[in-house]
Amino acid sequence: MVSFDAWGRQLVDLAGGYALVVDDRVPIRHHQGMRPAERNTLAGPGEAGVIARATCLLEAVAEGADTIRGLARATGMAPSSVHRLVGQLVDVGVLARADSRIQLGAKLFELGAQVPVRRDLADAAEAVMEDLREATHRRIHLAVLDGTDVVYVRILGAQSGIASKVGGRIPAHATGVGKVILAYSSTAAVQACIDTGLHRVTPRTIHTPQAFTYEMRKIRTVGMALDLEESTAGVSCVAAPVFGADRKVRAGLSVTGPTRSIDPGTLGIAVRTAAFTLSRTLRDSGI
C-alpha cells in the first residue's frame, strides 16, 4: 500500500510500520507506532518544512490558484499533500472553501490588521495621502520594503487600469516606491536586489547592476524616484522617501497614473512635500 506523509513524500506500508521512499531506492523506516494522523501534525522534526509548505500554499492562493490541482501545479507538491495541508489550513481559518474553490480565510485579514508597524504607518499616513490625492487627482500608494519586494500598505484613489492592491507585492527594483526606499537603505539591501537578477517586469525595467547603481545615486541626488512604465506598461509614477522617528527610511510614497498624466516636475514637488509632512508626523509620533 502506498501513501504520502505530511511533506508529500511517498510512504509504503511495511508490516504495520511505514517506510519513506528516497529517490525510489532505499526505504527509510519510520517509527513503527506512528499513525497516519500523527504524521499529519505540524509538530516534530519536520515542523519547519511543513510551515514552509503551508506558506507556499498561502502564497499560491494569493496569486490565484484556487483548486487542489492548481495548487499542486503552482507549488510542485503532491496533490495528496496539498489536500491534507489545505484541510488543516481551512480548520484554523487561514484558508476557506467557497463552493469548489479555495480562498484566503478571514483569519489572515484579522492577523494582518494587527501588524503594528504597518498598521500605525498606514493610519498615520491617511490624512497626508488624502490631501495628496485631492491635490493631484491621481492614485496614491504607500509601500514598505519586504526583502527584495515592496508591499502596498495603503492605496487611495481610483484604479484607472492600475492593478495595485493593498497587501500586493512587486519587485522593488521595478517600482518608484521600491527604488526610492532602496536608494536610502543600506548597501546590503541594494545588493540583495541586484543578487536576485533584476529581472524585467516590463521592457523598460532597469535590469543591469550598473544601471541600477546609477539610478540609486540619481535618486539620492534629486530626492525622488520615477517609474517610467517599469512595472506596468502605460503607467508611471513619482515617488519620495518617508523617514521614521529613527531617521531611517520607513516607506515610499508615490503618485501614480497613466504615463501621459504624470508630470514629474509638478507632481514631484507635491509628493516630496507630502512625504516630508508624513516623515514629520512619524517623528512626532515616535513611529
Rank of each mutant, 00 (worst) to 15 (best):
80 S>P: 06
164 S>P: 03
167 G>C: 10
82 V>C: 09
109 F>M: 10
158 A>D: 13
106 A>R: 13
48 A>H: 09
162 I>C: 02
159 Q>C: 12
68 I>D: 09
151 V>A: 08
141 H>D: 04
101 R>T: 09
59 E>V: 15
95 L>F: 00
167 G>V: 07
99 D>N: 13
82 V>W: 03
141 H>Y: 03
70 G>D: 08
162 I>M: 03
140 I>F: 04
89 L>E: 00
171 P>F: 00
104 L>G: 07
80 S>M: 12
96 A>P: 06
147 G>F: 02
159 Q>R: 15
141 H>I: 02
165 K>Q: 12
40 N>K: 08
99 D>R: 15
45 P>G: 05
46 G>A: 11
85 L>T: 12
125 A>G: 02
161 G>Q: 09
60 A>W: 07
144 V>E: 04
57 L>T: 06
164 S>C: 10
128 V>D: 01
173 H>K: 01
103 Q>V: 13
74 A>F: 10
86 V>C: 05
63 E>T: 12
154 R>F: 00
68 I>G: 11
74 A>L: 12
151 V>L: 11
76 G>S: 12
135 A>S: 14
69 R>S: 13
100 S>F: 08
113 A>V: 01
35 R>L: 15
166 V>M: 08
32 Q>K: 05
113 A>P: 03
80 S>K: 13
64 G>Q: 10
170 I>Y: 02
169 R>D: 05
126 E>H: 06
140 I>D: 02
66 D>F: 05
80 S>H: 11
84 R>V: 14
165 K>I: 11
93 G>P: 06
149 D>P: 02
88 Q>H: 14
161 G>H: 08
127 A>I: 03
156 L>F: 09
125 A>C: 02
141 H>T: 05
81 S>V: 08
120 D>G: 00
175 T>K: 01
70 G>C: 12
43 A>S: 12
173 H>F: 01
85 L>Q: 13
30 H>M: 14
118 R>N: 08
42 L>S: 08
73 R>F: 14
48 A>G: 07
174 A>L: 02
77 M>V: 04
159 Q>T: 15
128 V>I: 09
